[in-house]
């Protein structure tokens, strides 16, 4: 059986909120290392990979691997019933047909309990090869979100070019063109505002801004976002969570002009 208790429902609320417009039905794969989720959007252009390590929960108990097939719209409806600060406990039997969610409010003695019916989702799993990326950019997540939104006003696609001078986000469309260039930057007082660019070789790739703006819904989960690029492989956009948990998005590039 599974029993996973989260100090703040807020974490799961924000994670589900960040991915519910990209994927609909997902398997939450529970095992002794934590709760994982991997799902692609309908067009197989983007993939979300979430890992909530067992350390994020206390207590965490998962006697055997359990796949919880859940519709994210249903999960969103139930999570709306939890206050951000509520203690959230997920429970499921082995081979369950429902997942049980309990929300306890810290100060007032209120306890809410919901069951969500599970679905049978036979999702193919994609093997994501370990990649030594040519370029890794760590930057404020809010800044990346603004760049994507700003450039999406001009074009559907953005080219991301990393050289030793820095990283340039550029686009062109019917009304004209635009670009944002960032260089490594250290803010001593506020390290969360740092921009760090690690480059082993120059790289330039083009991506859909619609998907990048969608990924940026996760910006509230982490002050920094990490972009990993190599020629001819999908972009990795990673939002690190506490306890080595993470929310990752992979996006296939656009090719040719």
């Amino acid at each position: 059986m599974l029993e996973a208790r989260l100090e703040q429902a807020n974490l799961l609320k924000k994670v589900v909120d960040a991915i519910k417009d990209l994927v609909q039905d997902c398997n939450f794969d529970c095992n002794d290392s934590g709760i994982a989720l991997q799902a692609m959007d309908n067009s197989h252009v983007a993939l979300v990979s979430m890992m909530l390590k067992s350390e994020s929960f206390s207590p965490f108990r998962c006697d055997r691997n359990i796949a919880l097939g859940i519709n994210l719209t249903s999960l969103t409806k139930v999570l709306r019933c939890a206050a951000n600060e509520d203690i959230l406990t997920l429970k499921a039997e082995d081979a369950p047909d429902v997942v049980n969610l309990v929300f306890e409010s810290a100060e007032s003695d209120r306890l809410s309990e919901y069951d969500i019916k599970l679905m049978d989702i036979d999702q193919e799993h994609l093997g994501i090869p370990e990649t030594e990326y040519a370029a890794t950019i760590s930057m404020p997540s809010a800044e990346f979100q603004k760049i994507c939104r700003d450039l999406m006003a001009l074009s559907e696609s953005v080219s991301i070019e990393c050289t030793k001078e820095g990283v340039k986000f550029a686009c062109s469309g019917d009304i004209g063109s635009g670009s944002v260039t960032l260089r490594s930057h250290t803010n001593v007082e506020k390290p969360q505002l740092n921009v760090e660019i690690d480059l082993s070789e120059p790289v330039a790739l083009t991506f859909s801004l619609k998907y990048l703006v969608n990924f940026c819904k996760a910006s509230g989960l982490s002050e920094q976002v990490r972009l990993c690029l190599s020629n001819e492989v999908p972009l990795l956009v990673e939002y690190a969570l506490s306890n080595n948990s993470y929310l990752r998005f992979y996006l296939a590039p656009k090719i040719g002009d």
Binding site: H44, L47, H125, L126, I128, E156, T206, P234, A252
Partner: peptide
């Protein structure tokens, strides 16, 4: 306009 590839070009079904 640039052509959108999909993930099957890069990740293998496991």
């Amino acid at each position: 306009a640039p052509f959108q590839t999909d993930l099957y070009n890069y990740f293998i079904k496991s």
